[in-house]
Write a protein that binds this DNA or RNA. Structure first.
Lengths: 229, 229
DNA sequence: ACATTTACTGTGATGTTTACACTAAGTTAC
DNA sequence: GTAACTTAGTGTAAACATCACAGTAAATGT
């Protein structure tokens, strides 16, 4: 069990908690491993950092290889370095979270050989994870809980045009609690960073809601004022 | 310049921003390097992580080697991994900050061979730093600015018994702005985590202030309520 | 037209934040 | 010991933010 991999005395990897929001559910992307150790286990997407790659680049690459997507909001949030977290040697792993919109069934293309398949899994229903990935996930969720209160990251999970109910939904899922509809809307609108598009939702049963867009320019002006969502 | 050190193809290190508060000034501990690269430059204390050390342990060790102190509040806050941040190879560095009370002239014992000397330097008056250490410092200061608003870390910088003015002083230095005395005291006392010791400051010119102690037990009970300092 | 579902709206009570200036107590210098 | 100095310590009113709470409006499907 404790055999050394070549070049494996010490190295570093990136692990990503890739959050996706899909009309009502908060999910993360998991892969089924195709290699030892933890072959056939579910795990967070991750890989070794390449020689001439920055950490941010490496995280983006991993996300891109798995989803085909680029230009996604990602943030480094913690580094896990227990000497025994990897059974075959010293691997320090730098964790990132990513937030993205799932447009219906966004194509996944798991082109890496180390994964058999990749799936979006509801965060409320995670399987047992390889390595210390449960711990990495827990800390990632905790981080975005804090961040969502102070920075406009919820919008990264939504399509460009969204309704206030959808926005509230994101907050409720991440914070893990119900919010009052009237207070939520009042507060969100009071920041003045939501642009009313004078446009209604299409293709829904029942009354269609007004669509909004997040106004990055106005937000940038407000920034520094430490607004609290 | 671009020669490879032995075993230096890729490795990881810890760098520490060690904050100390000393009767009115916020300082950090800097070392003067005794080795290439950046020989004779000022730098953050740091070192390579050892084989069987966790990251937290490594950070504690570095602090201990330099100050002789143990049981100090430290927190990992970011990992710096630009491929070219170290001129001799790939070194990913995990940054920690530490907060401690400077009791007068707390003995420093720089027993490491890589440092000629260590000094407490006012954060307002930092010299040019080696590597990307200025960036590491900036991010560390930014982190404690945020954290001090929500968690009781200011107390780590103060002696066990302190006055409200001293506490306010810490806040003002970290946040970089003046606070209103009455509002500050009202708010701090309202949390109910400060114990009035019925005891006055000694050895000061002019009126002596009441001493307080931070009540960790009460704080722990409150915790989860996300109190805002 | 009726039933159903979701969108949307306002007010009053409570708590928090801000702005603001004087008196009290102890020390030092004479 | 008294005057001058320095820091400690205290309260209130206005503005603002948060919270709790329920009914009407609009669109859809039958």
């Amino acid at each position: 069990m404790k055999e050394e991999l070549p070049q494996f005395n010490s190295t570093f990897s990136i692990d990503c908690v890739i959050f996706g929001f899909d009309g009502g559910e908060l999910k993360i992307l998991l892969i089924e491993r195709n290699e030892e150790p933890y072959k056939d286990w579910w795990a967070l997407p991750g890989n070794l950092v390449r020689v001439n790659e920055s950490l941010d680049q490496s995280a983006s690459r991993i996300l891109n290889e798995l989803t085909g997507l680029g230009d996604i909001y990602m943030e480094q949030y913690y580094t896990f370095g227990d000497p025994h977290r990897h059974p075959q040697g010293r691997v320090v792993s730098i964790a990132y979270y990513a937030l993205l919109r799932l447009g219906g069934d966004k194509a996944l293309k798991p082109i890496s050989t180390y994964a058999k398949q990749a799936h979006w899994v509801n965060v409320k229903d995670l399987p047992k994870l390889a390595f210390d990935h449960q711990q990495i996930f827990d800390k990632g969720l905790e981080k975005i809980k804090r961040r969502i209160k102070h920075q406009p990251i919820a919008f990264e999970l939504l399509p460009e045009k969204f309704t206030l109910t959808q926005l509230q939904n994101v907050y409720e899922l991440i914070l893990g609690k119900k919010l009052d509809k009237r207070n939520f809307r009042k507060k969100m609108l009071s920041f003045g960073v939501l642009k009313d598009l004078d446009e209604k939702q299409k293709g829904v049963s029942f009354r269609a809601a007004t669509l909004y867009r997040f106004d990055k320019r106005k937000y940038a002006k407000l920034f520094g004022k430490e607004i609290s969502f």
